[in-house]
Design a protein around this nucleic acid. Structure first.
Lengths: 340, 340
DNA sequence: CTGAAAGCGCTTACAG
DNA sequence: CTGAAAGCGCTTACAG
């Protein structure tokens, strides 16, 4: 079961390895027609498959990009990653995906493995735990692009949603439809994860813009296991909210469970707009009004940035690229007080 | 920006490359304590990172498994892949995931790329288009394991659901709750994709077992874009079905859309059991009774099989491993004729 | 306990 | 148009 190598092909076609290599790299102008055919036949007959590992070693490039995602459970992440893979594939690059599971230790281990495997670049949805490591990579000019979040104080490229706009769209829609007491639900902001912080800030600025009071009690930021309690507190308030803005799909699931357990009918008892499009938005009863991120474009941009860095030697000033959210209006916030 | 190599470390520590290599492979018994420390310091000072590509070339092993999935859009696939990644990771293997998008051409290209990259094995959710290629791999004893589907007539290991049992569980549950006219929805069986065929066969054998007539008109197998029409035909029948068994999450989405568009209330107007657990089963109204596959165990088993093949030289007779489905009873098929 | 040498399978500058 | 040689960064059998 020995694998056939370029030497076998060379011997069989009675040419040198060099010429076979030229053939493999499609530099046919370096050989006669007749030679080309001999090599072609030899490859066919021996069923030769080039060894890319050897090629990578020599070329110092693996044509592989590593992707590290803080938490693959978010539908947003899954969608962006699909786009990243597709785009890389169009460029004849492979993708290695790693799920850090929100654990900085795991993230660190993955980064090191990927570097040892000589990936040509990294696209990462960062946790908040590896500032130093990222700094070193950026300083050494290694191609790296952040998605969804950036790392505070680091001078790296990032592909981000315009989070403020996302919240404003949600709040505006709710107000237009008559909801005034609006609460917001996000996953924990203890670790200062950028989009979450921006979404909470966006909530406040939206309330201000529409001359509404900001009640701290209406802002609930906590991780999924604790959200149930947070939501409960919301509805125990003297003035419970008439509507909820859910910060992502995980907070959405918690809220939907709560609503179903407490016979809160969405749309009638409480309005709902959620950030991130989810697969079941259309078939949920009532259908869910969502703020969608342009996941396809964001993934594509991330790939373009990382490949550009890899291919060009020059240094470009790092930038944060903001993408516009869009609202998909369905029925979960159709009309306030519909029950009356 | 030249990378530091094992030679740099050797020079800096004033030992040979061989000894550094022994150190890297943790064979400390081959050197004095003092030497070990010198190397340790040199690595630290130079911030040396080993190059795994070179190592792979020499060792003829990349510690990487390729995963090719026919269609990543299935929630089942996503779940199994997560389990595969986790398990491989525990074994210090990397994973490269490719989505064939139900396109045999794409699948073929991916297989070839993965082989060129010298993956140590392949786990694949096969399309039906590459029999010959798979045959060659199996015949040459390359470590390969099929998941979800096997390729007809090929002697390879496969990790499968007990599809017949899955349908029986669904039908039994519906009958127990008073539904008698039961239809089944699957994606197209034109290409003889094994689980779909088994599910249709399972439907027939279940009907027989419970002494019910098999009506061909109650069996709808078509790809998502055409399902709407198929479902419509079902409900135009003289005797429309009282309940639906949905073959997977994609047929489920089509059915839910249809039901919502035609004001069919699930549970009241029509009972529903679907194969594959979906994220929103709990929060759907009414909550969905599902037949869950043990995705975690299946992924784990696939990894064990492929690593075993890779590590052991001996030839084991290939086998099909069947996994038991389980029913998660919720409310979408609670009681027939609830409307009366 | 340590090192020199060969080799993994490619690519490419260079010579002819 | 074609080939011999060097080298990518490791590992390992072998000699000392």
């Amino acid at each position: 079961m020995k694998k056939t190598t370029i030497s076998d092909v060379a011997k069989h076609a009675q040419v040198s390895k060099s010429t076979v290599s030229q053939y493999l790299n499609e530099r046919y102008e370096y050989m006669r027609e007749e030679t080309r055919e001999r090599i072609e036949n030899a490859i066919e007959e021996l069923n030769y498959q080039p060894n890319n590992v050897a090629r990578s070693l020599k070329l110092k490039s693996t044509a592989t990009i590593g992707v590290i995602v803080a938490n693959i459970l978010h539908s947003f992440s899954t969608q962006v990653i699909r786009s990243i893979e597709d785009t890389l594939n169009e460029n004849d690059f492979s993708t290695i995906i790693c799920n850090a599971d929100d654990d900085p230790e795991k993230e660190k281990k993955y980064i090191e493995t990927l570097l040892a495997r000589q990936v040509d670049g990294l696209i990462v949805f960062p946790t908040s735990g590896n500032r130093e490591l990222y700094k070193r990579l950026i300083d050494s000019n290694f191609p790296i692009v952040f998605v969804d979040r950036y790392v505070n104080g680091l001078n790296g490229d990032a592909v981000m949603l315009d989070n403020e706009k996302a919240i404003h769209l949600a709040v505006e829609h709710l107000l237009t439809n008559g909801y005034e007491n609006i609460a917001v639900l996000t996953t924990s902001i203890d670790t200062a994860v950028v989009p979450r912080v921006e979404r909470v800030e966006g909530y406040k600025s939206a309330m201000e813009r529409f001359d509404l009071p900001i009640r701290e009690g209406y802002i609930k930021s906590m991780d999924p296991p604790f959200l149930k309690k947070g939501i409960d507190e919301l509805f125990q308030l003297e003035n419970p909210p008439q509507a909820i803005v859910s910060g992502n799909d995980l907070t959405l699931m918690e809220f939907l469970k709560y609503a179903s357990d407490h016979d809160l009918e969405i749309g009638r008892d409480v309005g709902l707009v959620t950030i991130d499009e989810v697969s079941f938005a259309e078939v949920h009863y009532p259908s869910l009004t969502t703020i969608a991120q342009p996941t396809f474009e964001m993934g594509k941009k991330a790939v373009e940035l990382v490949l550009h860095k890899f291919e060009s030697e020059q240094y470009d000033e790092p930038q944060i690229y903001r993408f516009d959210p869009s609202i998909i209006i369905r029925k979960s916030a159709e009309k306030a007080g519909a029950r009356i």
